[in-house]
Design a protein around this nucleic acid. Structure first.
Length: 414
RNA sequence: GCGCAGGUGGUGGAGUGGUCAAUCACAAGAGACUGUAAAUCUCUCGCCUUCGGGCUUCGGGGGUUCAAAUCCCUCCCUGCGCA
C-alpha cells in the first residue's frame, strides 16, 4: 500500500486523520521528530520509537554533504540506513537557503516578534549576497537555483529544484518536499513576492522532475510522495495566492513554510488551509512550541516538525505542564524529586522522569556527561509527541477547546 | 637548619616600577533557542552605584620612590632539594 490520507474527524478547520505510508501509519495531527543528519541527536531509533514518535524527518542539504546521498541510497535508503523502520521524510534544503543565506551570522529566526526590528532587518536588501558584519553568507540565490558553500569545508555546491529532487530520490524517504526558498521575516513585501513567485516556479520544476523520475512499485505507483510548499511571509494576499497556485498543482501533500510574525502565525495558517485541497495532508514546517500546536491544528495543520524539543533538551531546558524549566538552575542541585510534569499536568511518565531525579539530571549536565542530552531529549520529545497525540484525542472526543484552554492556562500560568 | 622556587579573584594562571590590577581559561549565576552552521550562543561574575562613575585590594608588617603586585628588609606560609 503506497500512500493515502483519510480524515476521520473534522471540526471547523481542524481534522484528525490517518496518513498511510509504505513504512507505516501516521495518526494525525502528529509531531514529526527531527533527525537532520539521519539521527535524532543523542537518541537511538529504539528510544525515539519508545517515546511514541511515529515519523522522522531528515535533511537533504546535510545528508548530501555528509555522507552523500548516494551512500544513503546504497545503504538501503534513509530508513534502513539509520535503522528507523517507520515512516520517514526529508526536507528539501529550502530552509538552508535562509539559514545559510539571509540569516547567516545574524542570529535570526523564521519567527519574528511583531514590531521587533533586530539586527537582521537592518540593511536587508532582499538578496542573499549581502555581507553581514560578521559572516559572509554561505548561500546565493538566482532564478535557476542556489549556490552554497559547504558548512563543513567551504567547498562550493549547487542546488536546483531538479537536483534537490534527485538527491531526495536517492535518500529515499517516504515523503519529501519541493525545493523552496524560506524567506526572512524581515524581508520587505517586494522581496517576499519575488521569492514566492520563484518558489512557485521551482515547485513546478520539482513536481515535473519527480513525476518523471520517481521510482515506482509493481503497480506503477510512486514509492515516494512529494509535498509542495506554500510561501508568502506574513502577507494575506501573498499567502492566499501561494496556497492557490501550490494547491492547484498535483502534489501529494503540502508544506506551509517561510516566515511568520509570532502573533498572527495561526491566522496565516488558516488563510492557507482554507484554500489548499482538503483531502491532502498539510505540514506546518519548523513549528513549534506547545502553544503553536493548538493554533496550527485549530487552523487545519496535520503535521509539525521542530528542532526545539531536542535542541532545548541539549541545553537543559525541559518542557513541563507549567512551562519550561532549566535543569541547570542552582535550585535543582539538591532536588531529589522527579524532574517534570507531563502534558496532562501529572507527574511525567517518560523513561527519564520515571527513573531519575532532578538532582541526578542536574549533575549530568554540570558534569557535561553525554547521557544528559539523551535523558533530556527523551523527556522533551515524549512531552511534545504526546501533547500532539492528546490534542488529536481531544479532536476525536470533541473536547479540543476545553483541552486547549486547560493546557494553555497551566502552561503560561506557571 | 641550609639552599632553591613560590604566595595575585571560587580555581588555574597573566601582569614584574607609572597610562592597568585582575588578559585568558575554568568554575559559578542567569538568559536565549521554532523545516538543526547548535552537546551552541549571550550576559553577569571584588564592593557600592542615580550606570556617569565611586571605592577596595596582589600572604602580614616595615621601608625606598613623586609613584610599588612589581625594588629592599623582616616575619609567616607552601613546594622541592640537601642535611
Amino acid at each position: 500500500m503506497p500512500f493515502s490520507f483519510k480524515i476521520e474527524k473534522k471540526g471547523g478547520r481542524m481534522r484528525a486523520g490517518t496518513l498511510v505510508t509504505p513504512h507505516g501509519i501516521i495518526q494525525t495531527p502528529a509531531f514529526v521528530t527531527v533527525g537532520t543528519k539521519a539521527t535524532v541527536k543523542a537518541l537511538t531509533p529504539e528510544q525515539v520509537a519508545s517515546l511514541g514518535a511515529q515519523v522522522v524527518l531528515a535533511n537533504t542539504y546535510h545528508l548530501y554533504l555528509e555522507p552523500g546521498d548516494e551512500i544513503v541510497r546504497d545503504g538501503g535508503g534513509l530508513g534502513k540506513f539509520m535503522n528507523w523502520p517507520g515512516p520517514t521524510m526529508t526536507d528539501s534544503g529550502g530552509f538552508q537557503v535562509f539559514s545559510l543565506g539571509a540569516a547567516f551570522g545574524k542570529n535570526a529566526s523564521k519567527i519574528a516578534e511583531r514590531g521587533a526590528v533586530p539586527e537582521a532587518a537592518a540593511g536587508f536588501r532582499g538578496d542573499s549576497d549581502e555581507k553581514s558584519s560578521v559572516h559572509e553568507a554561505l548561500a546565493k540565490i538566482d532564478e535557476d537555483g542556489v549556490s552554497f558553500k559547504s558548512v563543513i569545508d567551504g567547498s562550493p555546491h549547487r542546488f536546483t529544484p531538479e537536483r534537490s529532487m534527485e538527491i531526495q530520490h536517492n535518500i529515499g524517504a517516504d515523503m519529501f518536499f519541493a525545493f523552496d526558498e524560506c524567506t526572512s521575516p524581515h524581508a520587505p513585501y517586494e522581496y517576499q513576492h519575488e521569492a514566492m513567485d520563484r518558489t512557485h516556479r521551482w515547485a513546478e520544476r520539482s513536481l515535473d522532475y519527480h513525476q518523471k523520475n520517481v521510482k515506482r512499485d509493481g503497480d506503477g505507483m510512486p514509492t515516494q510522495a512529494l509535498f509542495g510548499i506554500v510561501q508568502g511571509g506574513r502577507h494575506e494576499d501573498l499567502r492566499k495566492e501561494s496556497a492557490k497556485i501550490i494547491g492547484g498543482m498535483n502534489f501529494d501533500g503540502f508544506g506551509i513554510g517561510g516566515s511568520f510574525d509570532k502573533e498572527d502565525m495561526y491566522t496565516v495558517v488558516g488563510w492557507v488551509n482554507d484554500i489548499l485541497p482538503e483531502g491532502k495532508p498539510r505540514h506546518l514546517l519548523g513549528i513549534g512550541e506547545p502553544e503553536d500546536f493548538f493554533g496550527g491544528i485549530e487552523n487545519g495543520a496535520d503535521l509539525f516538525d521542530c528542532v526545539a524539543p531536542t535542541r532545548l533538551a541539549r541545553t537543559g531546558n525541559l518542557y513541563g505542564a507549567h512551562g519550561r524549566i532549566n535543569i541547570n538552575n542552582a535550585k535543582f542541585k539538591k532536588d531529589f524529586d522527579s524532574i517534570a510534569t507531563g502534558p496532562d499536568g501529572k507527574k511525567c511518565v517518560c523513561y527519564t522522569c520515571a527513573n531519575y531525579t532532578a538532582a541526578y539530571l542536574s549533575h549530568l549536565f554540570r558534569a557535561n556527561e553525554m547521557e544528559a542530552a539523551t535523558l533530556a531529549s527523551i523527556h522533551n520529545l515524549h512531552f511534545i509527541v504526546n501533547l500532539v497525540k492528546m490534542i488529536r484525542q481531544s479532536i476525536l472526543d470533541e473536547k479540543f477547546q476545553e483541552f486547549k484552554k486547560e493546557f494553555l492556562t497551566k502552561y503560561h500560568g506557571k
